[in-house]
Design a protein around this nucleic acid. Sequence first.
DNA 1: TTCGATGCAAATAGTTTGCATTCTA
DNA 2: TAGAATGCAAACTATTTGCATCGAA
Lengths: 153, 153
Amino acid sequence: MLAGVVATPETSEDLLERAVDLLRASGRRMTAARRLLLRFLFDGGSHRTAEELTADMKTVFPEVSLSTIYRNLDELERMGIVGHIDLGQGAATYFLATERHGHVVCEQCGVIFEIPLAAFQEIEKFASKHYGVTVSPHQCAVLGTCVMCAAQG
Amino acid sequence: MLAGVVATPETSEDLLERAVDLLRASGRRMTAARRLLLRFLFDGGSHRTAEELTADMKTVFPEVSLSTIYRNLDELERMGIVGHIDLGQGAATYFLATERHGHVVCEQCGVIFEIPLAAFQEIEKFASKHYGVTVSPHQCAVLGTCVMCAAQG
DNA sequence: TTCGATGCAAATAGTTTGCATTCTA
DNA sequence: TAGAATGCAAACTATTTGCATCGAA
């Protein structure tokens, strides 16, 4: 899977601060793994899998374990700090929730493209009008085929 | 997972005929499992998992195996007879490809709602204009929360 | 009678969980 | 020093694959 388009969070400072505050406020502890995960989430590229994040972190902190990363990502997601998309094919990718956006993912190579929420308006309208459903486009990905893969047949 | 809104294929006769023709034409064989799967796909409700389909089929043909169903669904999908969506959470659901549509899925209870492709136009436009990506909305699902689940908190 | 299709069991991938241990507040 | 968090290994779910056998054409 290739690296996707990188989210360039405009408020990543604020978000990090919020993350730390929320952790503190909820009686959680600032452990080495946690601190490092936050650093890698904020410094590294967006849209990475738990495995990729763990691999990166192991270069600095070799004893960190994949399950800790999953547990922390889960927690950060419940706190609204990160989001993730899961295509059902391959691993889920995690990203900072600084800028809410939808996704289009190439089915062939897995590159991820960000789509502004505005483009999801028609879907939101239809879903709410006909089914009373509130959609959360940032948690999903529409599949597609990118130029490169289309060119290769 | 509750049963979703049922697709009411308008051309299911044609599609079944096409399925049989395609199978014959490509040198494939009309086995008991294959015939039965087609029958259950066309007669039963839409949006069912491989496991659900297998369970249904076992009531009539107990020795059928899950792997056969996966293999056949895969084949039928490559032939354009069925489609499937995979939320990454729980099993993928399969449906007849008679009527192309997108999906919105309730994250809490899994009910599936169909969204007309027209509602995906903005996404298609944006993806093609900015990234050169061709999207296939029928193969994806946007997550959301249905009225029932929203009411329950 | 060939070779596509099947059933079964084992393998796989991604993620989650149980539990004894470690470390933060 | 309480109990949150961790690492490790094992469990789990959905799906795929290997292989001997079966059966449609």
